[in-house]
Design a binder for these strands. Structure first.
Lengths: 155, 155
DNA sequence: TACTAAATGCAATACATTTGCAAAAACTCG
DNA sequence: CGAGTTTTTGCAAATGTATTGCATTTAGTA
């Protein structure tokens, strides 16, 4: 059960209008579900939650359009599965400001968007970086609390 | 054709022995092919090159075992496909020192292992990072040279 | 309210990866 | 060196994630 303090307050209807997207039941539901938690949610998890209301293909299409518009950002986990989280207000179709650090818990597999800003990297001559993706792997706060005496058991 | 200076000199037979792995034709071929270039190679590319000599499933198994042993490291590209590169000598089964920056070219899709060391990140309270993965996306040296006057065409 | 364009659902397909199992190859010990 | 044991390989089938084509439905609008 998500902590209320984690809840990102968004207005799906307004967000859709701002981005020139039609208002549909499915699109609103996806936004509602993703906004429940700041922790990124994977496509399979979303499908598990919404699969009875929304067709799998529709879900993929909505997620893609949201990413294109800069509403969601996509983080690949270590298995190559897409995870999604609400973008900060600064994101737009033209440019994703997805420059914060992600934390991928190797125990519960959740992906957190940390407040830590990704450091600027100096590229070698000839390489022009446009965006940077920084993900730390380890044990998250919750998993550290749950098994303080036996955290080695899982790894 | 790979530049000779890119060629990582490894001894497949010795490497297998060091890691307690049986010496098979397939395992040697995979090491040879990956050592040809410092640029990471994707599973599909490897399969294209080796598919007539090695079964697809065997290739997957070899790549997994090499990653487990710390011989190769795996980098996920933006499509969630696995890419592999030779680990530095410091890597072992117990711990991957995969702390350099990767550069994923959005034009040719190649993944480079840069000499740039990934910066240390300060984690929030309760989060314990074990490894960090930093990938920069942009246009690589070669692609910048190839189309200096019209680099916007592909993106 | 009827029209038009866009979004949805369904079926089929593509692609990466894994699993089960029998056949083949690699170490090893007498 | 050759039989025996174990590991690895190849093939077939299955799983999981994501995309495409097309007919139907729905949203926004005139």
């Amino acid at each position: 059960m998500p902590n209320l303090s984690d809840m990102t307050t968004i207005n799906p209807t307004a967000l859709l209008k701002e981005n020139g997207l039609k208002h549909t039941r499915q699109r609103v539901r996806v936004l509602e579900e993703i906004a429940l938690d700041t922790v990124a949610i994977s496509q399979p998890e979303l499908e598990k939650k919404l699969g009875k209301e929304i067709d799998r293909v529709t879900l993929y299409r909505i997620l893609n359009i949201y990413q294109d518009k800069g509403i969601l950002h996509r983080i690949m986990d270590m298995n190559g599965t897409a995870n999604y989280a609400i973008c900060s207000a600064a994101c737009s179709e033209d440019h994703h400001h997805d420059d914060h650090v992600h934390f991928n818990c190797t125990s519960c597999l959740k992906i957190y968007c940390l407040e830590v800003k990704a450091p600027h990297l100096k590229m070698p001559h000839g390489f022009k970086a446009v965006t940077t993706n920084t993900t730390a792997y380890g044990i998250c706060e919750k998993c550290n609390q749950q098994e303080p005496e036996d955290s080695a058991a899982l790894q």
